[in-house]
Nucleic acid binder design. Structure first.
Lengths: 141, 141
DNA sequence: TCAAATTAAATTGCGTGCAATTTAATTTTA
DNA sequence: TAAAATTAAATTGCACGCAATTTAATTTGA
């Protein structure tokens, strides 16, 4: 008789623990550029797309305005992004990078590789993990 | 030239997104027994070990007293656990289950299987994921 | 043995996450 | 076309997570 309530039988707990562990690993690197992990993710979206609405960012990061609005205000205070209402649709807020925000990209460039190395995970393992995770994330409600 | 700053090149973002997604999947099931996911994890530790110090729980869940103290106070308010200073070492707080806390286990029993089914993940994939994750978690500072 | 170091929780402060509600703008439709 | 429905952000409220500090108890070591 299996005991599915035992911690070491769980899959979800390791995922939850790993997520926090990975963010911990990022911290010293992100501290150097004064960013939190979610703030770094938002900037990653903007480095790739220059301008995005709050909703578009939320769609990519799976975060809602309740999380993003205050986070974006903090990035604005740090002079990394600009928030402005769309001219064509006043409901929409468009987020774009300041020059400072664009420049931060250079400093951030080495972070992903450093992290992979630090985690000591092989490229094959990364692929396997990503495939399973993407499959799990795709089965949305 | 690879662009490691692209979101879809990342491993860490999928892990972070999956962790939140999984907790979302738990929510409706845990709502029925009025628990958050971290509260459920603490109870899982106690269902397995009856009595644990704050530090012992923190060691198993990788959480510190800053997170656990208020969480445990909430579980105490719900009459699910008892918090009491150790007689032999006044610094230590021992956490044990109330009868109500013990009984909750029955209701929680079906949750893990339900979740695995809902996620649509195979037992083999679970094993693969867990092996990689455990390897990553083991390489502690 | 007793001051210094260590340890366990608690506290403080801040930044998420997210449900639920609110506000304001736009779109739909009767 | 004007009320109803929808949509995008913002707001509110609560529960983590975690760094840093504090408090109190215990252990160590000169």
């Amino acid at each position: 008789m299996e005991d599915y309530l035992k911690l070491d039988k769980q899959l979800c707990f390791p995922i939850y623990a790993l997520s926090r562990e990975v963010i911990q690993r990022y911290r010293p690197l992100l501290d150097e550029i004064d960013l939190t992990y979610p703030q770094y993710l938002v900037l990653m979206v903007l480095w790739e797309h220059q301008q995005q609405t709050v909703n578009q960012i939320g769609g990519k990061l799976l975060l809602d305005s309740g999380t993003l609005t205050p986070l974006l205000k903090r990035l604005e205070q740090k002079q990394l992004v600009i928030r402005q209402r769309s001219k064509t649709d006043e409901r929409v807020v468009e987020i774009s990078l300041t020059d400072e925000g664009k420049q931060l990209r250079t400093k951030a460039e080495q972070i992903p590789l450093k992290l992979i190395q630090e985690l000591g995970i092989s490229l094959e393992e990364i692929t396997v993990m990503k495939n399973i995770i993407n499959k799990l994330l795709k089965i949305k409600k």
